[in-house]
Amino acid sequence: MKEVMLAKYGELALKGKNKSQFEGLLLKSIKKRLLKFGDFDIKKAQSTIYVIPAGEGFDIDAATTALTKVFGISSVNRAAVVEKDMSAISKASAEYLRDELASASTFKVEAKRSDKSFYLDSMQIAAEIGSGISSKFINLKVDVKEPDVRVVIEIRDYGAYVHSGNIGGAGGMPQGSGGRALVLLSGGIDSPVALHMAAKRGLDVVAVHFMSPPYTSPMAQEKIRKISEKLCGWVGRLPVLFVNFTEIQERIAKYCPDNLSTVLMRRSMMRVAEKISVKEKCNAIITGESLGQVASQTLEALICTDDATSLPVLRPLICLDKAETIQRARHIGTFEPSILPYEDCCTVFTPKNPKTKPHLREVIAAEEKGNYLEIESEVADNYQVEVFRY
């Protein structure tokens, strides 16, 4: 009995004349993500991508898990495929789902007939398969509302597919379909979640991490590597740019008002990030800021921050509370490395009494006295690149 995987579209199915462009990006992502699991063939039809193992060594368990993390896929089915013949379908239903049916008390058969030329309709298919299962598993009862096992039959163009229901996918849009953006990756809980949410909307992402040695330790950089490895399970490939921000922060601390140091630091990061974005061909900056969470994330502070760059600043978490962000961080696997106790440059220079409602004019005036604007270009030109892959 041949086993395949069905990867089904989400909102991508609603696209019009440019749908093929999105499909091409999705196919590219799937091929790259599954390459390490062995040989396979791939084809698409009816808003579904069919992944067909081509050799004995194909790791279908790991491949199925990997598919659920590819953006653009709403659900995945691991299914047995047989010819479109009711006796073959009945036999496959009992054999392929034998373990699940044997341990269950109730079941339900659902039939979907996208191939309308098939001689039975969905109700007739479900009735006949259900009758066959009941005769083989005499202790099973039918429960159409809350069954222990769902037996799903899909009659499609390429054959009949038997499985036990959908495995949730990552959703969103294929990576690269929304452009390219630079993400400020701090090492805290928030920014990795922001990166994941941006990638889910089709953005190809590049991460930048500002470090301040010797105030930040090598372990803080190692923490970013651990976070990036987790994110690669979702984005496949992640370039991370490590920027030495020490001299700028030292000058802000020396020459500028302490209560404005955080917003001045954020403005400097934005200018450096914009310069890097030009080289990395990014058209937006993404941060993990959430409205009102800390002093630098009040509306007044964000206005001052955004004034420093001409690029759009996207904030996926802007209206999430911390509990929601933590829940997402746990889901994508970045929570544990994010709470490792190694400080980043945003925390080591935190002022005692930051101004929560700064005025742009006073911020610009303080900035002009800071004696650091002239070195931002040099900082933006000297970064280390590490590329993480799934």
Rank of each mutant, 00 (worst) to 15 (best):
R150Q: 12
L120K: 14
E56H: 03
F107A: 10
K19M: 08
V70R: 01
K145T: 14
S131Q: 10
F40P: 12
L97W: 02
S103I: 09
T48P: 03
D148Y: 03
V70W: 03
K145P: 00
K43Q: 09
N77K: 15
D41R: 15
K136W: 01
V151K: 08
S75K: 14
S74V: 14
A62N: 14
G132K: 11
E110D: 08
K44D: 04
Q21W: 09
T106G: 08
G159L: 11
K69Q: 15
A88P: 07
Y161T: 07
S122N: 10
P53F: 01
I89F: 04
S93N: 05
G55C: 10
K36N: 04
G57P: 05
Y96S: 03
V70T: 08
N139S: 13
R78T: 11
E146C: 07
T106Y: 04
A127M: 06
V142N: 05
T68I: 05
G57W: 01
I30W: 00
K31D: 07
P147V: 11
V51S: 11
A92C: 09
D59Q: 07
T64H: 02
S117W: 00
K112G: 01
K32S: 05
R156K: 13
I153W: 02
A92R: 02
L101M: 08
A88T: 05
R113M: 07
S135M: 13
K32R: 14
I125M: 07
N77V: 09
L26V: 13
Q21S: 13
A63S: 07
I60H: 09
T64C: 14
D85H: 10
E146T: 12
I129R: 02
G24H: 03
A80L: 03
S134H: 05
R156Q: 10
R98Q: 13
A88W: 06
L67R: 02
D85N: 15
V82R: 01
V70N: 08
K112Y: 13
L97H: 02
R33V: 13
I49S: 06
Y96F: 15
F137I: 11
E23R: 09
R98D: 14
A160H: 11
N18K: 09
E95W: 00
A111S: 15
S103L: 04
Q21L: 14
P53Q: 08
D148K: 01
K116I: 03
